[in-house]
Every structure is written in C-alpha cells, then in structure tokens.
Design a binder for these strands. Structure first.
Ligand code: NAD
Ligand code: NAD
Lengths: 206, 206
DNA sequence: CTTCATATGTGAAAATATTCACATAATTTT
DNA sequence: AAAATTATGTGAATATTTTCACATATGAAG
C-alpha cells in the first residue's frame, strides 16, 4: 500500500514526542494527547499509525516506549543510518558541528569536497575526502544518505554521481531541482522557498 | 479565496526558474516548459497561477520577466523583506555568512542572542543585540520575519516573545513544535524530519 | 484570408488526504 | 458484576488537491 508522504513526515514528529515523553518517564499516552502536542487531530494520528499496524489498546492508548520503537522500525532507524556530507563550506561545517546527529540515530561517517584546499584536512575530527573517491567509500562504509551542501552550480552534477554510486536518499540544501533516477528519494531544504512562502503568509507590505 | 500552501511553495520555485531564465535571456515560456524544469504537470502550473490572475497569452505562453514580477508581487517580495536572526551559534553564523539573502530579496537587518559573551560583539559585520531589545528593534526596523536558530529548549519562549512583538512570520530551525497565536505563520526547517523521512524512503536496511 | 498549430484558463472529474462516527474492547467506578 | 467511561481502529463521508479535457484565443504558414 502507498503511504502518504505527509504520514511519514508526521511519524518523525510522533517519534520525537515519544522520545521526550519516554525521557520524562511517561509510559502511556492517547492519540488525543499526542495530537494535542502537535496541534493535529487524534483521528489523524490513529489513521497514520493504522497504515502500519495496530499498536494501541482500546480504552487505554499506546505504550510510549513500544510505540516509539515501532515507529523507529517503520522509519528504519533501529540500526542507525550512515550519512555523508558533501561540500565542506559554511553550511557543511555548521552541520558537522551539529551534535544532534547521534541523538537522531544518524552517524556522519565520511565528508567530501572537491577543493584541493580542503581534501585531506580535518574538519571537526573528520578527514575530508576527495569527492572522486565517493563511489568506493560509499560501498566500503555502506552509506545510506548523502547530504549535499555544495554550490548550486555543482548540485546536479554531484547528485548524478551520488545516484550512480547506489545511494537511495539525498538531502539537498542547494536551491536547485535535482533530476535523479527513479528510486532515489530527494528531500530539499530550501531556505528561499521557506522565506518566500513566509513572505506571502506574512501578508503584503503596506 | 483560500490558496493551498503547496501552491505558494511552488510559486517560489517558479520564481527561481524565471529568475534564472531571465538572466539567460529567455523572454517567453510555456506552462509545459516551466513544468518540465520542475518535474510537474503543466496544468498544475496554470492552475497555481490562475488563483491570482491571468498572466499568459493563449497560443503564446508567458512573458518571463512579467511573470517573474507578478509572482514577486504575489509573494510580497518587491520591496524587500527585513529579517532578524535570533541565536548566533553554529547555525546562526552559517546563515549570516550566507551571501544568498540579498539575491533572494531579503535583508538581515538585526541579529540577537541572550548570551553576555555574544551581545555587543560583531558577527559578519553586524552587532549582536540583546534579545530583550527585540520588541523595540522590531518596531524601529520594521522587521518582517524572524529566523530562530536558538537551542530547542529556548525555542518556544523565544517564539512567544517574537509573536508578542508583532512579527507575523517565523522560520524555525529548532526541532520543536511552536505554539503561536493565530495569524503568525511558522515554517519549520527540521533536519530530523527530513533525515527520518529519507530513511523511510531509502527502505528498510537489509 | 483561411487553416493549422500552439497554449492558456478553467469547470469537471479523478485522485488524495483528512475527519467523522461508531462498533468494539479495555478499564474504572459504583 | 453491571454500568459508565475511555479510547482504539477503520469504513464512510468530507474536504482538498491534482489532473483532465476542452472552449477559446493567438500567431504562423500557406
Ligand atoms: N550557508 C548557508 O547558510 C546556506 C543557507 C541555505 C542554503 N545554502 C546553500 O547551501 C549550499 C552551500 O552553501 P555554503 O554557504 O556552505 O557554500 P560554500 O561555498 O561555503 O561551500 C560549498 C563547498 O562545496 C565544495 N564543492 C564545490 N563543488 C563541489 C563538488 N563538485 N564536489 C564536492 N564539493 C564541492 C566547495 O569546495 C565548498 O567547500 C549552496 O547551494 C547554498 O545556496 C547555504
Ligand atoms: N547546527 C546545525 O547544523 C543545526 C542543524 C539542524 C538544526 N539545528 C538546530 O538549530 C538550533 C541552533 O543550533 P546551533 O548548533 O546553532 O546551536 P548553538 O548552541 O551553537 O547556538 C544557539 C545560540 O542561541 C543562543 N540562545 C540561547 N537561548 C537564547 C534565547 N533565549 N534568546 C536568544 N538567544 C539564545 C545561544 O547563546 C547560542 O548562541 C538548535 O535547535 C538545533 O537543534 C542546528
């Protein structure tokens, strides 16, 4: 069955709530209380979960830890995902400095650039590899996701290289539409789209 | 009439294509050629635009420059939007170093933090202000959009301050759901959601 | 001038996504 | 032990979004 993309995105949000609730010692919650935390409808939560199975108990709700683990399984997070960052400039370095990856269950196992000034140097404890070594390192390290923080002009070219190396998921920060083969998932984090949409919703300037 | 949020987001993408096409000297395009650039349907492009008016010519298509300007008007970009960055840590600094804001038609007019180590110091040519001065500076500078790059624990508190200062749009990088008054638009750029969704779409690990 | 090709704008239809509402079951109260 | 309360899971209903399909207009070719 085809799962709506929005459902998958909400599962990530549910996971985060469950993670914090479990840390706070909560052991049970209802679809209503989860929905309230995220300003959603309870039916939405139940429907989303129902695509994947029956995780709750009538009259009781869901076991926090159990549901968290079920969602981790659905999202493929149990074993930890391996990530590469390509393009070690401003943004690439900010991401590298980000302590949150491990908490998220992701591990940055390799970093790449094409600049002779950067290849071989250490950034946040990791040696920057030559982008041309990418296909070999992907195979060796079993990398799951490539994060692209390269200039816009290079993004398509790098996306092609990445796709041809067998990577099935790309997180792209460059403001460009990437053409990739079917079967490769691309998420775009696009500052321009966000700012311009906000500009619209903030209303016309008086 | 209520405009779908997805339509607004696509308008930003159309704008970017039109911007590049105009730079390349193109003066006319069809809904089909615009759609092809973004892997969309031509009817989608036309429907999106039709919410706001009639910008094309039958048998001819759209004038690139004219359509670009119309979309700028729709999105409220003509005059330039003023932006503040709150939280001058790793991510805030990466954003500050980002040259793209001006090209996008956005101007970072003030930056804020609450750390005595940062207040008063210069970052990328801008003096970091005390967050407690935010309401006054918003009014003085007529800031439109607040970008939040504060730690997750502070995000809700800062969002409240920002909303109470009359800001109508927030771009939030903290992995937290922000409760804000009606009429305030929030966009979340959420690395965790993107990575976890990609993890799902990349398939279960074998 | 007429015909042909092109491409918009938009109601209608189809596809998707959300919400309702209720049968069902577990738990708590009396 | 019965009644009342709570809350799931899910078909059906509703709402939203996308796509179709065509009347209509424009420009080019003959
Ligand atoms: N800096 C930001 O805050 C920010 C915000 C939003 C979006 N972005 C986008 O993110 C991307 C990167 O931005 P940045 O400011 O970090 O740029 P940057 O110029 O600082 O860094 C880009 C890095 O990519 C490397 N690179 C170039 N071509 C490459 C290739 N073919 N293979 C491997 N590496 C290559 C460069 O050597 C450089 O180190 C851009 O597309 C930008 O528009 C940046
Ligand atoms: N660094 C990244 O690459 C990255 C990636 C994705 C998401 N994020 C998220 O972005 C946020 C910021 O990340 P970071 O790595 O830049 O953190 P950071 O700790 O480097 O910076 C946070 C800054 O916010 C300031 N701050 C704290 N409370 C404040 C308040 N009440 N008012 C004003 N300023 C305040 C701190 O003094 C600090 O300078 C976090 O929520 C993080 O999860 C960061």
């Amino acid at each position: 069955m085809k799962i709506p993309e929005k459902t998958v995105r909400r599962l990530s949000l549910y996971y985060r709530c469950l993670y914090f609730l479990s840390q706070q010692g909560a052991y049970n919650l209802s679809s209503k209380s989860l929905a309230d935390l995220l300003e959603l409808e309870p039916a939405q939560v139940r429907k989303d979960l129902s695509y994947f199975g029956q995780f709750g108990k009538k009259g009781k709700g869901y076991d926090v830890l159990e549901l968290k683990n079920e969602i981790a399984k659905i999202l493929g997070l149990e074993k930890g995902r391996k990530v590469a960052i390509i393009g070690i400039g401003n943004l690439g370095n900010a991401l590298l400095s980000f302590k949150g990856f491990e908490v998220l269950g992701f591990q940055v196992v390799a970093i790449f650039d094409n600049s002779p000034n950067k290849i071989g140097k250490k950034y946040h404890g990791k040696i920057c590899q030559d982008i041309s070594a990418f296909p070999a390192i992907v195979r060796r390290e079993k990398i799951d996701i490539a994060i692209l923080t390269v200039p816009t002009e290079s993004a398509q070219e790098v996306a092609r290289l990445v796709s041809n190396s067998g990577i099935k998921a790309i997180l792209n920060f460059a403001p460009a539409h990437l053409n990739v083969p079917k079967g490769v998932a691309v998420s775009n984090i696009d500052l321009a789209v966000e700012l311009k949409s906000l500009s619209y919703f903030a209303g016309q300037k008086q």
